[in-house]
């Protein structure tokens, strides 16, 4: 199994739920944001993570880059378990694991010029020579389609698309191996989305970077990903190669997602939307995560959680029906 760039095994993250008295008493329950995720990412591969908001996909990404601490499981990267590293031990790995945020404009220091922001990152990672830093920054800006002009701008002087390019530049500048993209295009216009996605594709092929692409937009995920994991309520419900997933979705949640996605070429009177809301997953949660909303729920689904197993080569799903 050593050939994977990053391997996540049974990752867990829970948040305490306190009673009326707040933190005065021990938490009465725990909310499982991530409840046992396992997947891997190979070198140069794009892994798409889809799911509705609140299913834990962003939390997973944040744990990988070390912004949140996991409560269980492991993340193997380069022979080290990221969950067990201290802040200090993690720091050298920052160079290799980067993140692009959804709301990039607020992920940039509003008081610094863009050139200074990017150069600071290089300073931290040991580029001592100022002229060299500047050269590298200008090269990276050019690579993401910005120019020298933007070097002297403040972040709030840029447009939404330019800001997102800049966010990618910020991640690229130290030549990482894996970039976690947390909804990088969902705040953008469709036409700008396309530009950014094309750029990401090019960069990925050129530099052989792996991406963990987190999004709720299955169209975007289909375009960019090599493999896709569908996430629901803290767990993966289906995972396979992109085209196989779209041709042959097995899990009822995946099918429901596809049915609900808008398609500009089909005029519909009504969307086949899922009814109800995502339940809260607590410690006591039993059965299949999707059982409360699944049209095919049986007694067994409510009692027993289906195993996430391989049904064909490279196609895993967690459902009793298949």
């Amino acid at each position: 199994m050593g050939e994977h760039l990053l391997e996540v095994t049974n990752l867990k993250k829970t948040y305490p739920i306190y009673g009326n008295m707040g933190k005065l008493f021990a938490p009465k329950d725990h909310m499982c944001a991530v409840a046992g995720m396992s997947f891997y990412i190979d070198e140069g591969e794009t892994y798409g993570l889809v799911g509705e908001s609140g299913c834990g996909k962003s939390t997973t990404g944040r744990i990988i880059v070390g912004l949140n601490k996991a409560d269980g499981g492991s993340i193997l990267y380069g022979g080290k378990d990221l969950c067990r590293l201290s802040e200090r031990e993690y720091r050298p790995l920052r160079r290799e694991l980067q993140m692009v945020f959804q709301d990039t404009i607020s992920a940039l220091n509003p008081r610094q010029r863009i050139g200074a922001i990017l150069e600071e990152t290089l300073t931290i990672h040991g580029v001592k020579d100022a002229a060299k830093r500047r050269e590298q920054v200008l090269a990276t800006l050019e690579r993401v389609g910005l120019s020298e002009e933007h070097y002297f701008r403040y972040p709030h002087e840029l447009s939404g698309g330019q800001v997102q390019r800049l966010g990618i530049a910020g991640a690229l500048i130290i030549q990482p191996k894996l970039i976690v993209c947390d909804e990088p295009v969902s705040a953008l216009d469709v036409s700008i989305q396309a530009q950014i996605l094309n750029m990401l594709m090019e960069l990925k092929q050129e530099l052989r970077i792996s991406l963990l692409f987190i999004s709720h937009d299955i169209g975007v995920v289909r375009f960019i990903s090599d493999r896709v994991g569908v996430m629901y309520l803290g767990t993966l419900v289906e995972e396979t190669e992109t085209e196989n997933l779209f041709a042959n979705p097995k899990h009822p949640y995946t099918q429901a997602l596809f049915a609900a996605a808008p398609d500009p070429y089909i005029r519909r009177k009504e969307f086949t939307a899922l009814t109800g809301e995502q339940p809260v997953r607590t410690d006591k949660f039993a059965g299949c995560a999707f059982s409360s909303r699944c049209p095919y729920t049986t007694e067994r689904c409510r009692r027993e959680a289906p195993e996430f197993r391989e049904i064909e080569k490279g196609h895993k799903t967690a459902c009793h029906r298949v």
């Binding site: 912004l67 920052r94 945020f101 992920a107 940039l108 600071e120 931290i124 990672h125």
Partner: peptide, 11 residues
């Protein structure tokens, strides 16, 4: 978020 982003950058 920019403080979080800075952490990811290795500050």
């Amino acid at each position: 978020p920019y403080v979080e982003a800075a952490k990811v950058q290795g500050f």
